[in-house]
């Protein structure tokens, strides 16, 4: 917790605010002033440091989850439609 790590009686932003800004902070979508407050807070707050690391882990792991290979139910119909489009837009059938 911030108070245990720092021994201070106040911080410029609360843990709840750091939590709220965690994803924007990780994506570097916070202003310079807010970023400075968050960096200082993280340096002295083990709880928030753990939390922000966990959100970063979730962000990274979600992108690595195995993806099922999906194909349309009616691929043939799509291919036929695609081929028909080509016939329509070929020089003989193309609009001028």
């Amino acid at each position: 917790m911030a108070q245990e790590e720092s021994g201070q009686t106040s911080l410029e932003i609360t843990c709840q605010e750091v939590v709220q800004w965690a994803s924007a902070y990780l994506d570097e979508h916070v202003g310079d002033e807010r970023k400075r407050h968050i960096v200082l807070h993280l340096a002295i707050c083990a709880g928030c440091e753990a939390y922000v690391k966990q959100i970063a882990t979730v962000r990274d792991v979600v992108g690595l989850l195995p993806k099922a290979v999906e194909q349309p139910l009616d691929s043939d119909r799509l291919r036929q439609a695609f081929a028909a489009r080509e016939r329509r837009s070929s020089p003989a059938g193309r609009r001028v």
Partner: peptide
Amino acid sequence: GEWAGHWALPPQPWDDQTPEKLL
């Protein structure tokens, strides 16, 4: 109180191997 808005129940840190373990 004085610590309003600060952790009462902070998250327990995950270890460095957590991403690999999860996957």
